[in-house]
């Protein structure tokens, strides 16, 4: 049964499948990098929605209004993971740019290391 709370997980599955499809079938290097980033966002969404509690407040103990809090650990994880993701994507884009300068093509099927 799909309730409101399980919607984010459905979105996660759709995003992961989309990014995998892009990685498998797209030839353009930039599109593959985009797919990696989409997958990273999907995993981040997964982590965030794991920690969500309905009607929860931000997990800050001082001056808290009381009641349910969302879990703090996934938020810390997601923050770290976002930063790492940015670094990875930036590095990949720089490789793609340098590769384009050397080879003059963005096509992954024109790769030369094989065998």
């Amino acid at each position: 049964m799909v309730t409101m709370l399980s919607l984010p997980f459905v979105a996660v599955v759709i995003l992961v499948c989309m990014s995998l499809a892009a990685m498998l079938f797209k030839r353009n290097m930039i599109k593959i990098v985009m797919a990696v980033h989409v997958m990273g966002s999907a995993v981040n969404l997964f982590l965030i929605s794991l920690g969500y509690r309905e009607g929860g407040v931000a997990p800050i103990f001082t001056n808290s209004p009381g009641g349910v809090m969302v879990l703090p650990a996934p938020q810390a994880l997601t923050l770290t993971s976002i930063v790492i993701n940015i670094a990875v994507v930036a590095l990949m884009l720089s490789f793609a740019v340098s590769l384009y300068r050397r080879y003059g093509t963005m096509d992954t099927r024109k790769m030369r290391l094989k065998g």
Partner: peptide, 17 residues
């Protein structure tokens, strides 16, 4: 084996999937 090691990054992902 030569067809398998064709050096295309999409196929690397395919093998992982």
């Amino acid at each position: 084996m030569k067809r398998m090691h064709n050096g295309i990054v999409n196929d690397y992902v395919y093998w992982f999937v």
